[in-house]
């Protein structure tokens, strides 16, 4: 079976924050929580790079290892989900996650205001009946059960953010890299400005 992953192509991401907005809107994410964020390195400097980051649905997820109530689990497809009913809001997962994926509503406050942890679900809902109102209220829409991929990736205008089976994503990325070349030939600077980075400074 597929192993679901996100892949963000830093050569293509234009920091439009469309993925962030799509996620917020699709799941009616609580105030103070961003399941997905765009991180920019060297912002404003020629050659800056942006990367859309959410839960990476780790194969060996540290959040699962540290959860004292054992309510975080991994589905057959490799999606890391949690049961909000059993969450005690301790925040261990927040400290364990290297990507800051688990977040707590009603923030910002010292150590967060806690409450039930919220995180990216890979648009796979949670442990409630697929497509039910209870599932939507707690976890957001279950697009996977509708045969669709996460909205953040599907609506990405430059297709920088890809989602789906890891092997298929690798094939897409490999083909992309082979076609565009590397360095200044890569999709990005040369395509946008038509001259070398050094000349443009």
């Amino acid at each position: 079976m597929a192993r679901m992953k996100f892949l963000c192509d830093a050569e293509r991401c234009i920091e439009c924050n469309g993925c962030v907005t799509a996620c917020k809107n699709e799941h009616e994410v609580p105030w103070g929580v961003n399941r997905r964020r765009v991180v920019t390195i060297n912002d404003g400097v020629p050659g800056e790079r942006s990367m859309s980051v959410a839960c990476m649905h780790c194969s060996d997820a540290p959040c699962i290892a540290v959860c004292p109530t054992n309510v975080i689990y991994q589905t057959e497809e490799g999606v890391v989900l949690h049961d909000k009913d059993g969450c005690i809001g301790c925040g261990y997962c927040f400290y364990a996650c290297p990507f800051g994926a688990p977040q707590f509503p009603n923030g910002p406050a010292a150590f967060g205001a806690r409450g039930k942890m919220d995180k990216c679900t890979f648009c796979a809902g949670g442990p409630e009946e697929n497509g039910s109102q209870a599932e939507f209220d707690k976890y957001g829409r279950n697009r996977l059960a509708e045969g669709k991929l996460p909205l953040c990736a599907e609506m990405c205008s430059t297709k920088a953010l890809l989602a789906g089976d890891a092997t298929e994503l690798s094939d897409i990325f490999r083909e992309r890299v082979l076609r565009r070349g590397k360095g200044v030939e890569a999709w990005g600077w040369m395509t946008a400005y038509g001259k070398d980075k050094e000349e443009a400074k």
Partner: peptide, 9 residues
């Protein structure tokens, strides 16, 4: 895992 059982997609 001690939470509720999930239905598969």
């Amino acid at each position: 895992y001690s939470g509720k059982a999930d239905t598969r997609p």
